[in-house]
Nucleic acid binder design. Structure first.
Lengths: 226, 226
DNA sequence: GAAATAGTGTCTATAAGACAGTATTTT
DNA sequence: AAAATACTGTCTTATAGACACTATTTC
């Protein structure tokens, strides 16, 4: 920064989070009711300003926003993209560093001023939140084609038929059972929970699996898609 | 923004660009010598503050930085990621929106205070610029596995053997000639320049191609990699 | 044992790679 | 003609998908 550059008007910097979860085999986005202007009372993506005194980086700000505004801890979180410009926020030229979080239904406790909306039935959103959600969906759908990303929408343990349904819900198309299982096997993503089965009806029960330790944070990648 | 949130210390927002180009079949990064503190006189990534009065968004800031500091116009440009935290810049808590640009050698005129460094021989860089370059390389190498991204390192026209060499330089491994050509054909990325051949020695000359109009900006994607 | 879903074996179809051939240029 | 690189035809191998079969549970 030099003397002539110093007085540039500061831009507003915030983080916004797209929290995705599955409900009834359909992707939902989490919205919170805004308690302050602009758009007070309107449902919007959870977001907030960076707290330079306490946040180690923008991802840390997103973690704090999720904890304080949505009561979520331990979510899978990745940076999505940064949105900017003079028009996206009525308060002026702004920058929003957008993050995408994937959580299981169990990680998302009911909370006042928090709701889930099916992505297929998203109405109007304030700011450029619609574009941010669109970017998150594109990212998740693309990455689900060749990675273990969707496991973060499942709970601690799950069966292979359940996991395949999660993939199919995200991708919007049925997958070949044999190929799906081959790929899951190749990625070495899962381990069987010994002895544990889930029997949900008048049929053979399914083996329960959990994500192996190396892939709790990182993603497993499949060489040539699913 | 509410009354208690308003006085949060502003964070510094800048854009940084990783300009990649090929020279002698090796990826190079463009560095500029800093004319102002901090790190005055040190070679660093081209970057600068957002000019809220004139920039339509952060990408526009990056375009301006490339034009003013590197004399590049019309480069392929995509947002990379945003880097943030209290330690990356000695001036305080900062946000850098990083962009990645791919240019041909011809688009990069020699200019004072601008140099190209082979990515394999990058020394120390100020700020967290080393991490930004690493992210750019990872992105470019990954995307080159299934897209037309590398064509932006070529000039207006080029032969298929030249293009294959570009891919191989980025990916660091030889590619199967038949498969490579099949994929290029499938992507419908190129069109032959009628009649134009490049003869560079005592051998059959190669057909010249150019990128088809739909892919001047957007990338062509190959379903299952190259 | 009928019904329902879980899980597997195996054949077929498609895509990638290897290899060797032909083509066209300069010297 | 020899040398060099461009380009292509075709066989082999690897991967993905279709289909049918067996397995295990409840009623």
């Amino acid at each position: 920064m030099n003397q002539t550059e110093a007085p540039y008007p500061q831009v507003l910097v915030s983080v916004d989070t797209v929290v995705l979860t599955l409900q009834d085999d359909a992707l939902h986005v989490v919205l919170v009711r805004r308690s302050q202007p602009p758009f007070e009372g309107v449902w919007a993506l959870p977001g907030g300003y960076i707290h330079a005194q306490e946040d180690a980086d923008a991802q840390d700000s997103a973690v704090r926003v999720l904890r304080d505004k949505v009561r979520i801890a331990g979510a899978y979180l990745e940076q999505l993209a940064t949105f900017s410009g003079p028009a996206r926020d009525p308060r002026g030229w702004s920058v929003a560093i957008a993050y995408c979080a994937l959580v299981s239904s169990a990680q998302l406790p009911p909370h006042d001023g928090v709701k889930r909306v099916p992505v297929a039935a998203l109405g109007q959103l304030p700011f450029d939140h619609h574009a941010i959600v669109a970017a998150a969906l594109a990212r998740v759908r693309n990455k689900s084609q060749y990675s273990s990303l969707p496991v973060h929408l499942c709970g601690e343990t799950f069966t292979l038929p359940q996991l395949q349904l999660v993939y199919e819900s995200i991708l919007g198309e049925p997958l070949n059972k044999v190929s799906f299982r081959r790929k899951m096997d190749e990625m070495q993503l899962l381990e069987a929970v010994p002895g544990a089965m889930r029997s949900g009806g008048a049929h053979r029960p399914a083996q329960l699996y959990r994500v192996r330790a190396p892939f709790q944070q990182a993603l497993a990648l499949s060489v040539r898609g699913l």
